[in-house]
Computed example of a mutant assay.
Amino acid sequence: MKKVIKITSWTLLIIVLSVFGFGIYKYQTDAMIRAMIQEDESKLYYYPSKEMASLESFNYSEYKLQVEDSITIYTYHFKPSIKHRGNVFYIHGAGGNATVSAGLIKPLVDNGFSVYAVDWRGYGKSKGKPNYKGVLKDTEVAFEDFISKTQNDTLKTIVYGMSLGGQLAIKITKDNQDRVDALVLDSSFESAQKIAIDYAPFEFIKNKHRNHPEKFNQDYVGVRDIKHIHNMPKLIIHSRHDQGVPISHGRNLFEKAKEPKVFWETDSPHIMTLRDYPKEAITRITELIQ
């Protein structure tokens, strides 16, 4: 009997040490798990690229904006060659930069929309390192510049947010309801906390995120803030096959949004609506502002 107990004890000890060792190994070698445990938002949510894609097929202007003493950001204003339908303030997602989104912007421009896109700090040519409060400030500064460049025309203003940029789109729209005519969300987060829970690989990390909402971006929370946007057309797009942001995020945003609102469920990959459904997307966006 003693021998059995001894063997069992040693077996359990080996299992515990193996699990503990594996945990340490993953912590040391997996940057994402380390970021989750340390709650390092700069690595959890932002994946900027400094590689610039060609914009030679566009008629566009590039602007350099001062946000803080040490932070300058770049924005791009793409202009259509046909009769203008509206002005789009475009907020890209967590990866790449504004020029990488050129293929998604092109259907809008080709169909008469002028598109103003912002690169947050750390993205493209923009200086600095992205963080929660910083990308909000960058977006606010860029939006004011966008308004200053479009306020003298009679065209409607559309805020278009992609993925992580959707939360910023909701915040900007909520704070500027007298200057925005429609909101479009494509594959958007409902909240940074929910994304952290969805992606946490271990239950103890999920529980940590569930139990501490105060650690997650309380200045703007999409699913909370969208309730305060009144009397504005909203198009919420999400794919049932989205591998980046589960469709539950889009459905929850739609549920909390006030009328008028439309939910468009697609079959495209994450944020690829404008690539895969350009004609229908243009039709639906145009209907928002008519």
Rank of each mutant, 00 (worst) to 15 (best):
F89R: 02
S114H: 12
L108F: 08
G103A: 10
S81H: 15
V109A: 01
Y116M: 03
H77T: 13
G93E: 03
H84F: 05
V118W: 10
I73D: 03
N111P: 10
P80G: 09
T75Q: 07
A98S: 14
R85D: 09
N111E: 06
A94V: 00
F113M: 06
G112T: 06
A98F: 01
I105W: 12
F113A: 00
H77Y: 12
G112M: 10
Y76T: 13
G86W: 01
V118N: 09
I91A: 08
R85N: 13
S70L: 12
N97T: 09
V109F: 01
A117L: 14
V100Y: 08
Y116S: 04
S101L: 12
V100D: 13
S114V: 02
G96R: 06
S114L: 03
T72A: 03
S81R: 14
P80W: 06
A102K: 05
A102I: 02
K79Y: 03
V109T: 01
F78L: 10
D69G: 10
G95H: 11
Y116F: 15
F113I: 11
D69V: 11
H77M: 07
I105E: 02
H92I: 04
T75H: 07
G96S: 12
G86H: 11
I73Q: 05
K79M: 08
F78S: 11
F78Y: 15
N111S: 07
Y116G: 01
D110A: 12
A94P: 07
F78V: 01
G96K: 10
K106T: 05
V118D: 08
A102W: 02
G93T: 00
Y90F: 15
R85I: 08
P107E: 09
I71Y: 05
N111F: 11
Y74H: 13
I91T: 07
R85P: 01
I73S: 00
L104T: 03
Y90M: 13
A102L: 11
P107N: 02
A94C: 13
V115N: 02
A94W: 01
N87A: 14
V88S: 08
H92R: 14
D110Q: 15
G93L: 01
Y116K: 04
G112L: 10
N97M: 05
R85A: 07
T99N: 09
T75M: 13
I73A: 11
D69K: 11
L104R: 14
V109P: 01
G96H: 11
G96E: 04
P80S: 08
V109D: 07
T72I: 13
H84R: 08
Y76D: 02
D110H: 09
F113D: 00
R85H: 07
G96Q: 00
A98V: 01
R85E: 11
D110G: 11
D69T: 15
T99H: 01
S70A: 15
V100H: 14
A94H: 06
P80Y: 07
D110Y: 00
D69R: 10
S114P: 13
A117K: 12
L108T: 12
N111R: 08
V88T: 09
L104D: 00
V100C: 09
T72G: 10
I71W: 07
D110E: 15
A98C: 09
T99C: 01
V109L: 10
G93C: 06
V88A: 08
P107A: 13
